[in-house]
Design a protein around this nucleic acid. Sequence first.
DNA 1: CGGTACGCCTGAAGGC
DNA 2: TGCCTTCAGGCGTACC
Length: 288
Amino acid sequence: MPELPEVEHLRRSLAPAIVGARVLAVTVRRRSVIDRGSASFDDALLVGRTIVATHRRGKQLALESDDGRALVIQLGMTGSVTLEHGTPPRGMDARHRHVLWDLLPSAASGDPSPAHRWRMAFRDPRRFGGLTAYASLDELERAWTVLGPDALTLTARELADALRDSRRPVKSALLDQGVTAGVGNIYADESLFAARIHPLRPAGSLGRDESTRLAGHIRRILRRAADRGGSTLRDYRDAFGQPGSAVQTHQVYGRAGEPCVACRRPLEAMQLGGRTTVFCPACQHLST
DNA sequence: CGGTACGCCTGAAGGC
DNA sequence: TGCCTTCAGGCGTACC
């Protein structure tokens, strides 16, 4: 389930290959995954344009074209973007490959013969993800105003400001993309465990030292996971089909009933806002 | 405001 | 082996 580290690693693996590349053509297999606004499919999907940059805010990935358009890719639960040269890798069953771009890398700009073409594929079996087209970077920026500060660079002050005056459980606040963008179920549990804060703690009850500690752990855990290529539970793959290894560093997620790495008592699971939440009832405190 | 539930979707996994 | 149920959860929306 892609969260910020998975999207950031995908961006890093994608960017060197697609920045500078020209979109020669696009194949749309399933129109419903695309929100193109008033644009045509070709315009929305950057046909004929050169990709000049990649951007990311939270879990959203954006491709910027040379005419100032932006295409946002959201992976949802099971989305992936892969780069292929020739035939698609095994396991990429066709019915979930919704959009295919034929790309001509900048290095081959003078020779558009098939030997130099790459194909970028958006695949998403469950279709919780999708593509959204923006006619300008201003429009993209406006859309992103609903997102809080990016979790990878979240400051203690930003987190404290966002949590203040809120009585909802701190984990619910972390999952709110308007509080900070990029934290999902896995890294919310991991960050709260690292900070020794109980998921049910009212967000506004965190002391200054606690919110500072929490912000630090969020940044550190997300950065390390991104550097490890993200958490591959089942679906996640980077642009070249490689899984990430961050799962090995998880201390609570997926470990309910197993001993806490700190105190050896069994980790507990509960439902919070419909999400499975794993925590250590001994190490993570319900009050200051 | 917050919380709860639901719908969207498919595939993996477990029970029988 | 195969059928059925349950679970996974990002995100938008309805409703209390």
